[in-house]
């Protein structure tokens, strides 16, 4: 199946995805990436729905398609405008993979993990610290004077910015993904490159864990006349000890106990409510 496709594409020099497919993917992203925002996966579902039509087209085989969709359902979070670059690059790499080139799913997944943080960093600071502040500054000034141009300018300005930036980053991501894939094919050290990407991926995930999981105990007691606040004691041993513990518990349940994610979700709910009512967490 894939061999046949590769031959066709090699002969025509054609790619599987048409410009129309790419435009639709970009539109799905910039419209609905954050429609099902949630604490568990943040933009996970948003990413999957954006790439879903591309996956359908690239992988007609049901099992391959299911595997690819599930892979793109994972935790994902970035800034929508600048992060569109990651989607573009992912689309290009998935296309290369469908065409039978030696791009592995490991490379694609690690690339997503490694890039989501930095692009969120760049995007958040440009979009919210620069663009938003400038546009709001001008618009509030006008609105205070009762000038309708205030909100109108703000609306138009930000919308044009969001559409333009995400369009440009999405398509440059797509081109870069294709370029990267060609280089990958040429280099002999694909194995060490995959490992290298995994390293960045791991270090970023570790950082995300410390930044995103929030657990604080409010337990305190009096021992020998002095008040002891448990959180302070824990912090003096090592900060973020409780978040690390919760993450370790989740991984233990997933890997060793083979529990479903639904089971773990319910467990976290029970823990959260029980320990709050016992005045342990707050």
């Amino acid at each position: 199946m894939t061999e046949e496709k590769t031959m066709v594409t090699a002969e025509n020099g054609n790619r599987i995805l048409k410009r129309r497919d790419l435009i639709r993917t970009w539109l799905r992203w910039i419209c609905w990436a954050q429609r099902c925002y949630n604490y568990e996966r943040l933009m996970g579902l948003g990413f999957c729905q954006a790439i879903s039509a591309v996956i359908e087209k690239l992988f007609p085989d049901k099992e391959e398609r299911a595997a690819a969709l599930s892979r793109h359902m994972r935790f994902f979070n970035t800034e929508n405008n600048w992060g569109a670059m990651i989607l573009g690059a992912t689309v290009a790499l998935e296309e290369e993979r469908a065409m039978g080139h030696s791009v592995t799913t490991d490379v694609i997944d690690s690339m997503k993990n490694a890039l989501m943080g930095p692009l969120a960093g760049i995007g958040d600071s440009i979009t919210q610290s620069i663009v938003k502040v400038i546009l709001l500054g001008v618009s509030i000034e006008l609105a205070v004077q009762g000038n309708v141009l205030g909100p109108v300018l703000y609306l138009a300005g930000f919308t044009v910015y969001a559409l333009a930036v995400s369009y440009i980053t999405f398509f440059s991501g797509y081109r870069m993904g294709r370029g990267a894939a060609t280089k990958l094919l040429a280099s002999s050290s694909t194995k060490s490159l995959t490992d290298a990407l995994k390293i960045v991926s791991m270090i970023v995930i570790g950082a995300l864990a410390a930044g995103n999981i929030k657990v604080n105990t409010i337990a305190a007691g009096t021992f020998g006349g002095s008040e002891v606040v448990l959180q302070n004691v824990l912090d003096s041993i090592c900060p973020k000890l409780l978040p690390l513990g919760v993450l370790a518990l989740v991984i233990y349940l997933l890997k060793n106990k083979r529990k479903s994610s639904v089971f773990i979700l319910i467990t976290l709910f029970v823990i959260g409510f029980a320990l709050t009512f016992l005045n342990f967490l707050g």
Binding site: E40, I205, K214, V215, N216, S261, I264, L268, G272
Partner: peptide
């Protein structure tokens, strides 16, 4: 509190 715990599942997965 539960909202603070749930990211552990996404990141754990």
């Amino acid at each position: 509190v539960t909202g603070g715990l749930i990211p552990a599942l996404g990141i754990g997965l």
